[in-house]
Structures are given as structure tokens and as C-alpha cells.
């Protein structure tokens, strides 16, 4: 099981990547930053970075404005 944003529990499977998780969560935001167990995953790694079972994932939506 993966815990996302301290709220949502998503079933884990072997080989599950960050991109798989975002798909399972139906994330539609394009501009996000993803942390797996408090370590940032660069966008270029989403398709091949595997998430361990029991991981805590944080997804930050990045909105324009500063």
C-alpha cells in the first residue's frame, strides 16, 4: 500500500513507477512535483522510478503566481 498526501491509500504492485501511481490517482495536473519518502523525483524519472511498497508519496501541485 502507498500513502499519498497523508490521505489516500493506493494499492501497490511490483514494479510500480511514479507514472503508474499518477495514472492510478487520475492526476490531471500537468505541473506537479513528486516526493517519494521525502526525496524529490525529477520529472524525467517518473516513467522508470519504482516506488517501494509502504512508501509515503507527496504530490505538490504547482500553480502559477509569485
Amino acid at each position: 500500500m502507498i500513502l499519498v498526501n497523508d490521505r489516500d491509500r493506493v494499492p501497490w504492485h511490483a514494479g510500480m513507477t511514479v507514472q503508474d501511481l499518477l495514472g492510478a490517482m487520475n492526476y490531471t495536473y500537468v505541473l506537479i512535483t513528486v516526493m517519494v519518502d521525502d526525496v524529490l523525483v525529477p520529472q524525467e524519472d517518473y516513467h522508470h522510478r519504482e516506488i517501494p511498497d509502504g512508501a509515503r508519496v507527496t504530490v505538490f501541485h504547482l500553480a502559477h503566481g509569485g
Partner: peptide, 21 residues
């Protein structure tokens, strides 16, 4: 405020500057 590792982020995480500032 939301925190993960060494990143701390502040805001409403949704509003866009096209709403006006």
C-alpha cells in the same frame, strides 16, 4: 504549509494568477 523532506511549500495549491493578484 505542506512539508516533505527539505521542501516546505506555502499557498492554497490551486489558485492561478489569471484570477488576479
Amino acid at each position: 504549509v505542506r512539508r516533505s523532506g527539505r521542501i516546505i511549500m506555502c499557498g492554497d495549491f490551486a489558485s492561478d494568477q489569471t484570477e488576479g493578484l
